[in-house]
């Protein structure tokens, strides 16, 4: 379970103080598939970085299974990101000189998983995101944008995290692959009890999530929740 309490993040810009995240509070049960929609610059990515412990809030707190992130030292936060979080970044943020499979193996290497085991898991995940096996060993900079997106999703799943934070996960994918990724995320939340929070512009993707939030000028409001079946999400 993830609980967000009065989260505030401010930045100084000259004499002005900007509040991309302004007193945000919400709670997600484990296994929920949720989405946040909002205009560009509304603070979606900032909120994701606070939830993923990439950044520290100005005030407020994030509690993961009752544990406050605000009280954790850097080492523990690194461990939290490694063990409990999977990120899918808008610009993929893969390591360009490594192969697809090496990129997916990285988080497992940091988690201390043996090489043979992580290689097997990496190949399995790349198959799950439907990356052609011929391209598993190919360097990232020789893959298309859509293929890189799939590798990024596979990397986020590598350590079977409890929470996946995805920033426009279908943004660079064709309709068919996008549908497949939505299906994959949905099955992860349902079958593996993984909490997934997706930031998207894609209304159709947002409509397929359990809970839908809107972020506007730093403030979060929840739109009416729908059942997946009603939203037409894969069962």
């Amino acid at each position: 379970m993830i609980e967000v309490k009065n989260l505030v993040r401010t930045f100084k810009s000259g004499d002005r103080t900007i509040k991309p995240v302004n007193d945000v509070s919400f709670m997600l049960e484990q296994g929920t598939l949720a989405s946040i929609v909002g205009k560009s610059g509304s603070g979606k990515s900032t909120l994701l970085s606070l939830l993923g412990a990439l950044d520290k809030p100005t005030s407020g707190d994030v509690l993961v299974n009752g544990v406050s992130l605000a009280g954790l030292p850097d080492g523990k936060l690194t461990e939290y990101r490694r063990r409990d979080i999977g990120f899918v970044f808008q610009q993929f943020n893969l390591i360009p000189n490594l192969s697809a499979v090496d990129n997916v193996m990285l988080p497992m290497e940091f988690a201390g998983i043996r090489k043979a085991a992580r290689l097997e898991r990496a190949r399995e995940l790349l198959e799950q995101v439907q990356l052609d096996p011929d391209k598993h060993g190919r360097r990232i900079n020789r893959l298309s944008g859509g293929e890189q997106q799939r590798v990024a999703i596979a990397r986020a799943l590598a350590n079977s995290p409890k929470l996946i934070l995805a920033d426009e996960p279908t943004g660079n994918l064709d309709e068919q692959t996008g549908e497949h990724i939505i299906e994959l995320l949905s099955s992860l939340s349902r079958d593996h009890n993984t909490t997934i929070l997706v930031v998207t512009h894609d209304r159709s993707l947002a409509n397929k999530t359990d809970r839908r939030f809107r972020l506007q000028q730093g403030r979060l409001t929840e739109e009416a929740a729908r059942s997946r079946a009603a939203a037409g999400a894969p069962a």
Partner: peptide, 12 residues
Amino acid sequence: EIGVLKAIGAPN
């Protein structure tokens, strides 16, 4: 890139 490595859990 260092930020990426840290984001995915690489220790310092």
